[in-house]
Design a protein around this nucleic acid. Structure first.
Lengths: 342, 342
DNA sequence: AATCTCTATGCAACCGTTTGCATTATTTAG
DNA sequence: CTAAATAATGCAAACGGTTGCATAGAGATT
């Protein structure tokens, strides 16, 4: 009962013409006369002919699949970025393959290894936090696979990059805290291997310096990870120390939310006793009480632009000179209830 | 500079043997003598030979790509399910392609149309809320593409299904609310086209009936969508009416969170004035104040099982008799601060 | 009528790998 | 020493579509 797909040859046989003519007819080749084309097209439609993509891929030695490698897909940040990518790709012939590295360098390398078996048209990657060298990414480049790095920078690697101005985002947030009267601002940061964390940390430091506030090492605490529970210990450490801060700038919303709950448990009033600002502006962040002040990132746009840049590179002509794109999106400070209004 | 991949022919030429011998050597064909095999394998390794997957796909007329169709990927529910799927597939030769329908029947049909161009090994689908007929899904079946439906039921469609016991989950939640003293329990539900919503609604109704409480139509309110903002209007309607409920069971956490904030704004005390229970147990739900009581679903396990069932079907032998799997996962009621403890 | 020029179409190779069958080389039996 | 059996390898087709080149047929030009 397994019906075999109808092929170009079937149409050719039926119409008593050659397969090449059918092929050309379907491509509107100018040398063919209209009647032939029309006959072919009509039958193709009638028989619901679909070109065999495997044959095409084989012939062209490339697929129409684009791989997206993200560290995690359950975080709003990446799932929203992926949605942006998806929405751009939906109107093209490309399909996207999503690969999750679980923030692991090894898994990431394995994914790229696995991908190199399959011929893919291009790769969009946000490297894992534990990624220390870029040899696996360079392999892609060596194989001439178009590549866009997004969100997380790979310092020293030449590639298209779509990033967020983490430095300014952090700077503005901390600057705001200072302007609102906070003098002892702590920062919960993450893995120092990650460019985004470092830029945010630097923004924090520079905002303090600009406002002539001391940079206190004890106020800079590293969280073990990005999840809610990773924010509890750092916050407790800060709030139970002798030198209690009057504000916490967390490297993301999850940690900020966690800091918030921990502070509440320790009977701190927010924002009177302690201000809190996060980073990301996840959809539910506005629904906490008080609503979380945070730094918004244009996640969806970032996904879309990354996808567009990749498409542009894929469709580049052979000799066409190309420039490496390096785009940096601006963030926006969203002040809600966890910080004092000014 | 574009290095062409090395093929089986290159190896054959180098060793002065035929391509077929190389092919067989790499497959450990018993007819070949050991020396030949060893020589081929050594050279293949030395030259880093990779079989051309496009050629293989073409030959076998199938790819090693599995499609996952979800309504939305920014929701925790689906992104966590996808992670489960991903983690199972990671150890196989299969890659997953994620497609987002945006809860739209049209987009879903379009995706399947696009997928049918590409030959895929199998499909995992959670249908969109607006999906009214299953013709597009049946097309997959007609083309003998293994299929698993997860989370959302397609009534009347014969296929592997991995679902959650929404009915019991809802029943238990409402039963708990009643036992905790609530007598006027409202339900914020969603699109009535969705099996999950209906099962939860039925669970709600049956729990009321079992406890001899009246089912009041005004207490059953349909939210426009699944997002936070969709919960505001229904909650306001409930809390501003003359007959104010003493509990709200929301069809998901997002709406519950929204109900919570709206209730707070209207000066309701939670849970004293009004209890709230959600559905999903998103990771941040425990971080609200009070922490959200909710119904936990085994999302990750669901993803894993769905993936395993699909793999099993894909690897089924031609004549092997197969049974349609129909798995239903149990939920778990998680009582936190938005409901009165008993 | 022979030659030329188009126009429309066909032929055949190609992409990389697998695999049924054929063929060669080697060994064993008679 | 020949025939038969066995072992090892090669040949060629197949998968579906594209495309450079060849060619048949019609019409135009001389």
């Amino acid at each position: 009962m397994k019906r075999t797909r109808i092929t170009i040859k079937d149409i050719a046989t039926e119409l008593n013409i050659s397969a090449s003519t059918v092929s050309r007819a379907l491509q509107d080749h100018p040398a063919l006369k209209k009647e032939t084309k029309d006959a072919v097209k009509a039958l193709a439609k009638k028989w619901n002919y679909r070109p065999n993509s495997m044959a095409l891929n084989f012939l062209r030695q490339t697929s129409s699949t684009i791989a997206v490698i993200v560290p995690d897909i359950t975080s709003y940040f990446f799932s929203a970025t992926v949605t942006g990518i998806q929405d751009i790709m939906a109107s093209t012939k490309y399909n996207i393959m999503i690969c999750v590295s679980n923030e692991s360098f090894e898994e990431e390398a394995l994914i790229i290894e696995k991908l190199s078996q399959v011929q893919i048209a291009g790769v969009l990657i946000a490297p894992a936090s534990t990624t220390v060298n870029f040899d696996h990414i360079k392999t892609l480049q060596k194989n001439n696979i178009p590549l866009v790095i997004f969100d997380r920078d790979c310092k020293g690697l030449e590639a298209h990059k779509v990033l967020v101005d983490d430095y300014s985002g952090a700077f503005e947030a901390v600057d705001y805290l200072i302007k609102s009267g906070c003098k002892k601002i702590a920062h919960i940061t993450g893995d120092s291997n990650l460019s985004t964390n470092n830029y945010r940390l630097q923004g924090y430091i520079d905002a303090l310096k600009k406002n002539n506030l001391p940079v206190i090492q004890d106020f800079i605490i590293h969280a073990k990870g990005f999840k809610h529970e990773d924010g509890i210990a750092p916050t407790e450490k800060l709030l139970k120390s002798k030198n209690v801060p009057d504000a916490i700038f967390a490297v993301n919303d999850r940690l900020a939310v966690s800091a918030m709950r921990t502070a509440k448990k320790l009977k701190f009033k927010i924002p009177e006793d302690i201000s809190i600002i996060g980073f990301d502006d996840e959809p539910h962040s506005a629904y906490f009480t008080p609503a979380l002040s945070t730094v918004w990132q244009p996640v969806y746009s970032m996904g879309m632009l990354s996808a567009r840049i990749l498409l542009h590179d894929i469709n580049r002509e052979e000799g066409e000179d190309f420039e490496l794109r390096h785009e940096v999106f601006k963030t926006e400070l969203v002040i809600r209830g966890t910080s004092i209004s000014i």
